[in-house]
């Protein structure tokens, strides 16, 4: 496997929901260790692009390669790719019937076939990394939103993914909990993880992104480095969007 090969390659991706074309001919390349932040108004198709990368949505047409593996409709192929791609959801989606520790060990044991002791060690390492090892035996409902999201990040990291996808990870959080989650994501970005992040947090985009992708109505409008994107946007549509959110 060549190491200058990009981690994610998306070519001419289209996703149609009935009459609605949610993603309209999107092509995107994400390099190894790079952080790509996708921003754009609601309904612009940014989450759908993210969900196509690990096949939670089946593309209508177009092709996706993840770490050199061509994503097809074959179930084995999809499971193989998913194990390498961690995903963090807006609604956390922790398993409410399991403790925090069990949440983080379950897929390690079932998918990675790790022993209970090994899975527990890795889980505790990751829980320490996100700053809540003391909550290992609590149930998700006993945690704050920010803590739940950090457990969700630890759960994904425990699978040793090569890529982390974040689908509006702070949108369901109370304002005072957003920072604790962004701090974990920032640390992850600095550690060299390949990340694709859909977010409305412009501060994070500016600090952590290698590249910003601005989407509107299913298409990529502009793609640039954070500096150029925020200080000198090329497109009129981008300027209009930024003037709405940066005041």
């Amino acid at each position: 496997m060549q190491h200058d090969e990009p981690m994610i390659v998306i070519k001419h991706l289209v996703k149609q929901f009935g009459n609605l074309r949610a993603v309209d001919d999107v092509s995107l390349t994400v390099g190894r260790g790079k952080v790509t932040v996708i921003i754009g108004p609601s309904g612009s198709g940014k989450s759908t692009v993210l969900r196509c990368i690990n096949h939670l949505e089946t593309p209508t047409s177009g092709e996706i390669w993840v770490d050199g593996i061509h994503l097809t409709h074959d179930a084995k192929n999809i499971n193989a790719v998913r194990a390498e791609v961690g995903m963090v959801f807006q609604q956390f989606n922790l398993f409410p019937h399991l403790t925090v520790l069990e949440n983080v060990t379950l897929a390690q044991r079932v998918v990675r076939k790790r022993s209970e002791a090994e899975a527990r060690d890795i889980a505790m390492q990751q829980l320490t990394r996100v700053g809540i090892p003391e909550k290992a035996n609590a149930y998700p409902s006993q945690l704050s939103g920010g803590q739940q999201q950090r457990v969700a990040i630890a759960r994904a990291l425990a699978m040793n993914p090569k890529i982390m996808l974040f689908d509006e990870p702070t949108s369901a959080l109370d304002p005072e909990m957003i920072k604790e989650v962004l701090d974990v994501m920032l640390e992850l970005a600095r550690s060299g993880m390949t990340m694709v992040v859909v977010t409305h947090e412009m501060g994070f985009a500016r600090n952590a992104a290698d590249e910003i992708v601005f989407m509107d109505r299913g298409r990529i409008v502009e793609q640039n480095t954070p500096d150029a994107f925020f200080t000198n946007p090329r497109e009129e549509r981008t300027r209009a969007f930024l003037s709405q959110i940066l005041r």
Binding site: N54, L56, A75, N79, A80, R82, A83, V85, G86, M87, F89, Q91, N93, L94, F95, P96, H97, L106, A107, V110, V111, R112, A152, R155, A156, M159
Partner: peptide
């Protein structure tokens, strides 16, 4: 059971039946 539970389990690499057995059915 909310759709997100199945999606979270699948995104961790579990098969449909594994997700049913360990995540959906217990709830």
């Amino acid at each position: 059971i909310s759709k997100g539970q199945m999606e979270a389990a699948r995104s961790l690499g579990m098969s449909y039946l594994q997700a049913m057995r360990y995540v959906i059915l217990p709830q």
